[in-house]
Design a protein around this nucleic acid. Structure first.
Lengths: 140, 140
DNA sequence: AATAAATCCTATCGCAATAGTCGGAAAAGC
DNA sequence: GCTTTTCCGACTATTGCGATAGGATTTATT
């Protein structure tokens, strides 16, 4: 039950961008230094966030990244789901109980309900926290 | 954010034992067949549960496993923590914020609070479900 | 006493994912 | 033209998962 560095670094980087929201493009290099992340590795992660539409990039000297939305409009859950895929403590939850791709017993499985409750609980926590919350701002 | 088969199989096996609680020792072979688990792999998992004191074993012909407590006294959280280690979405939570073994920035880390909330939420769900709940019994 | 049914124990192993690294191409400001 | 920066694809080392293998030990049954 671990969150990988993809998710953690993704949130850290987005939090950093939130802190500098409205200040023009922020270079990956500075984000990586402040957050203590390998710059080259962070590049890959930002590519994912860019393709998902959460950040936009400006290439060339003095370029960098900016959030595409106000920090209050992006939740930690958004970021985690992009970086790690859908939150599902077991793969079985990714498909309907009937005709389940991962488990023929899904319909009669007693434990499946447990994992569904865990998933809902995680989703609920992560979706309740926005980047603005992390940045300590209240731009409703 | 996945639960491994150790945790899942552990819960399934314990649920199976709960269904047969009070009926004498249940062989691993029958549990493995009913729950669709590799018998030999399940052996290892039961060893872990035995050492943790949640099941006891009777060796020899007609032997098997039984729960050491009433199903209402064992929660899914107990089993998951034994099988997978402490629930911590990030390793950083395994040590105090000051002098943290995994991250020098733990004290000033904004995201650490997020992961702590996630952990508490998972713990809360898992600890609220007992084997008796799964077995559909209410032996208070 | 022999057999069969079971748990117990240690070692090994293939696979996939994680967490990067590396090298360069392309874009844009100066 | 030079430097800064993003962009892209390929490669790699380590780790843990999910087993499998092979036997040793214990006990009920015949």
């Amino acid at each position: 039950m671990k969150i990988s560095t993809k998710g953690r670094y993704g949130v850290s980087a987005m939090y950093d961008l939130a802190l500098h929201y409205g200040q023009g493009p922020i270079s990956l290099k500075s984000v990586a230094q402040r957050q203590g992340i390998s710059e080259h590795y962070l590049e890959q992660l930002m590519g994912t966030l860019r393709k998902a539409g959460y950040v936009k990039s400006i290439r060339g000297a003095q370029g960098g990244y900016t959030l595409t939305k106000d920090p209050s409009q992006i939740t930690v859950g958004d970021i985690i789901r992009i970086m790690e895929g859908p939150i599902a403590p077991v793969d079985c939850l990714l498909t309907d109980a009937a005709h389940n791709e991962y488990c023929a017993r899904a319909q009669i499985c007693v434990t499946r309900g447990v994992w569904a409750k865990v998933r809902d609980s995680i989703d609920s926590v992560l979706d309740s926290i926005s980047l603005a919350d992390l940045a300590g701002e209240e731009k409703a």
